[in-house]
Write a protein that binds this DNA or RNA. Structure first.
Lengths: 229, 229
DNA sequence: AGATATCTGCTCATCAGACAAGTTAAATTG
DNA sequence: CAATTTAACTTGTCTGATGAGCAGATATCT
């Protein structure tokens, strides 16, 4: 540790703003000082204020809304490192349960909203998966598989959904690998992905939802089987 | 390129830089492109590059040394969910869409799995909400509301789901506040929460799912109305 | 009067260019 | 050769201008 390094003005500004929030009787949701006011108060330029605010935003202390101002956010108490460990060790079945809630609906939205570019990208991911099916490069397979699922989420134009899928598929990659090691699973995945893609291409939300559900529950039961056997 | 629009340039730059690092065969400790090079590469000004780099620095992806350059850092051992909450600047409508996917199912699971302690806790949250309804303490109201939703997720015994709900309700608090400012919304919330709780208490998953869906869509349409009016 | 449209003044977002300050390595000088 | 200076990078900060989102006041029309 090395607490004596705070050369940057923006870092000093971060500290100053943090104490201002702490001592200023702000309730989460309250409007805070504007960038200009902060600059005047702290005697630094707007650039530095902006960098400080950016840092505080990433840290979850404030949230910035274009045209409205800077708002005090709920302090991100809970998610500490220990908590994170716990949650990341959640069982693969918990993850699957959540995926089976989210992904079919994502496929539904995708079938009704995806544009041509997104479709192309999904097709490419499917193709890539097929091309790597015979080879030994499991990492490429896992990536192509994750890409496909992520692209569906992305094509819904819903940012929250997209980030959600991104983290879900990433944190699942280990479990995913084991599932692709199950004999026959790769071939099934190709077929199931194809069915999902077809439904999305046909703009048939219900079918896309159903095919995605089938894909996930197939994978899950294969994993179950390979574990109990 | 990016189907998810209306994002800040600096955010786009963050994504671009992240993929550059990922695809650029960088080993932690390697020097990365300079701010000027990045600006030229990404076609944005140095200010935006700097904000992007600041974000990436706080997230632990790069480290910046005055006079030396930008260096790629050890990736912070994939704590995916925390990353997601940080990335999350999506609109309230995106959040709601996702909540309307997840929460009804959560209520469904809760109705079939919740134990007595969880039920007690939910009842208490509802009661707390009612008690604070008349007062001016909006923060307490928001907390009680969030608690109720989080407790439902927790009672499913699915860690992943619980963590998800925790982050969703926290990052939404500011939008939540505005929704509770809408005339009549508080009373409706009391009624709707009550209906959900009853269904869970009666161990009626379908009804719990339906009531939760109704609660969320009511809130959403109230917010929509208050915005267009 | 009431509804509608415009204007105005806030906010954050981005840009371009300048200069200060830290670092590094080549060029200069003894 | 060795020490010093210089030059050319780097990030850090500042300034001032413009764009864009938002909200309330003002003006206009029906």
């Amino acid at each position: 540790m090395d607490p004596i390094r705070k050369t940057r003005l923006s870092e000093q500004a971060v500290e100053a703003i943090e104490t201002m929030i702490a001592q200023g009787n702000y309730v989460p949701g309250d409007r805070f000082l504007s960038e200009n006011e902060l600059g005047k108060e702290l005697q630094v330029s707007r650039s530095s204020v902006r960098e400080a605010v950016r840092i505080l935003e990433v840290r979850g202390r404030v949230s910035v809304l274009h045209g409205k101002g800077i708002f005090v956010a709920e302090p991100p108490e809970g998610n500490s490192f220990a908590e994170w460990i716990r949650d990341n060790r959640a069982s693969i079945f918990d993850h699957f349960e959540v995926r089976m809630i989210i992904e079919p609906k994502a496929a539904w939205y995708s079938a009704s909203k995806a544009d041509q570019d997104s479709l192309k990208a999904m097709e490419k991911a499917c193709q890539l998966f097929e091309e790597n099916a015979g080879k030994e490069d499991m990492a490429a397979l896992v990536k192509a598989d994750g890409d496909f699922h992520r692209l569906i989420a992305r094509s819904t134009n819903n940012r929250t959904l997209y980030f959600l899928m991104k983290t879900m598929t990433r944190s699942l990659s280990e479990g995913w690998i084991t599932s692709l090691h199950i004999p026959g699973r790769i071939k099934k995945t190709i077929r199931e992905h194809g069915a999902i893609l077809d439904a999305i291409r046909d703009r048939d939300p219900e079918r896309a939802e159903g095919e995605m559900m089938r894909h996930l529950s197939n994978a899950l039961s294969d994993i179950r089987d390979s574990m109990t056997r």
